[in-house]
Write a protein that binds this DNA or RNA. Structure first.
Lengths: 159, 159
DNA sequence: GTAGCTGCAAAGGTTTTGCGGTCTC
DNA sequence: GAGACCGCAAAACCTTTGCAGCTAC
């Protein structure tokens, strides 16, 4: 369970053509707004609020409503993942090849920094729950929250 | 990790006077709306949407806005716990003595039945994350989702 | 050319806020 | 009687929907 920072503006590991190829494969159209959205998401590899994502796009590149619709489409085809941190609405992150596997996040409750936790111990737990409860197709949603090292020093008040 | 059904209208284990005593202890006023809310919650020991909770109250007993305000107050003093299932808004459940310990839920994605899972394996994981990341006061939010046995038979469509 | 996509406007749903009147202590 | 609390109205958000025009294929 090694934390990994997912701060923005890292080298982008996913190429845009790789992403648009997936759209083509699904017979979805490669439009300006969709390219702008994917371009923004690949440069910011952590869960973004819809309005944050929209703010990243150049003025006039894409309407806010189109961002909502695109997230719904991309989620349905598995290119983005919906994540809930419980404040301000749903967040979305690109499903990259390296981050394709199920993972969780560690969120600072003061500054909202996000780290990615690479492995998950709960797949076995899901199987156990299925056996004990009779439920099927059991999945889970798990996020961790805490105060990051920087905020421990500066004692930023919780927003 | 033994599932436990939390269907409604069980015998209520928490007495109303026990609950109002907690209010008095915090110098909060024991009003009609608050009693009605606590009375409804102790008879329905599973996470309720605000509007579900409001619907349980007799006409005119309590305004919807007052339910919102009460949940905020009661959460702050630790009498209710906020739970997020990701649809329809926040849910709240009474923090009873028997269910005081941290626990999780198993939610049917078809009929929304809720079972309570009594133990949690993640407290040790939180400590490990603190050591590895430098974060402090690490907590987590975890819920399980699946299809319950009844819905497997009737193949109810996902709402 | 056609189906799908977009922008704009408007509506729907949840949650919060302001304010005057009411009630608990 | 004072402060806390409530109901009502309205606003603030987040999200979805309808529709007419535009665009990628």
């Amino acid at each position: 369970m090694k934390p990994r920072s997912t701060g923005c503006c890292h080298g982008s590991h996913v190429e845009l053509p790789t992403l648009t190829a997936k759209l083509r494969k699904e017979s979805l159209k490669i439009t300006g707004p969709r390219q702008a959205i994917l371009e923004a998401m690949r440069h910011h590899p952590h869960p973004l609020l819809i309005k944050e994502l929209h703010a990243l796009l150049a003025e006039g590149d894409c309407d806010l409503v189109t961002v909502y619709r695109s997230m719904k489409t991309l989620q349905k085809m598995g290119m983005v993942r919906r994540v809930e941190f419980g404040k301000g609405g749903s967040r979305f992150e690109l499903v990259t090849d390296e981050g394709r596997e199920h993972h969780h996040h560690l969120v600072c409750e003061a500054c909202h920094a996000v780290m990615q936790l690479d492995d998950c111990l709960l797949l076995e737990v899901e199987r156990r729950i299925e056996k004990a409860s009779g439920f099927r197709s059991v999945t889970h949603r798990l996020e961790f929250f805490g105060i990051c090292p920087a905020c421990q020093k500066s004692s930023v008040p919780k927003p």
